[in-house]
């Protein structure tokens, strides 16, 4: 099994629209890979069908078995990170190895306040 890691600059995970998210990805691959890709994307989680949209990618073809690379993405203006009881929208940075499909993911928050928007006040308390 490969070892994959995503480190965000200053360990920061909360961002405003249009800000830059940057960091470093590192990997130790268990077997040769065609590519390693860093993706900035959002997905929904909840009761219904899951939606996913990739906002930006950085691809490293024919990666060395062990390496690390910086990445830098400018966040879009929307959609905002939010949670209700039926659906949450979650932003994340993902490191994906092809063709093995191994992944590592770090979730981040994108909103005008820098905090996840909660649709119900009672969601603010710990689950």
């Amino acid at each position: 099994m490969s070892v994959l890691q995503i480190t965000l600059h200053d360990n920061r995970t909360e961002f405003l629209p249009g800000e830059t998210v940057e960091g470093r990805v590192s990997w130790q691959l268990a077997q040769p890979a065609k590519s390693v890709e860093v993706r900035l994307f959002w997905f929904t989680r909840g009761k219904g069908t899951t939606d996913v949209e990739v906002a930006a990618t950085a691809r490293f073809d024919r990666p060395a078995p062990s390496d690390q690379q910086p990445f830098r993405f400018t966040l879009p203006k929307a959609p905002y990170s939010f949670s209700g009881k039926l659906i949450s929208l979650v932003w994340a940075i993902e490191l994906v190895v092809e063709p093995s499909g191994e992944t590592e993911r770090v979730e981040i928050v994108l909103s005008p306040t820098g905090r996840e928007i909660l649709l119900y006040p009672d969601l603010a308390s710990p689950a």
């Binding site: 009761k47 949670s83 209700g84 009881k85 689950a127």
Partner: peptide
């Protein structure tokens, strides 16, 4: 509970 924490969410 937030949808993303629900253990019975579709993706889970």
């Amino acid at each position: 509970m937030k949808a993303r924490d629900n253990p019975f969410s579709t993706d889970c």
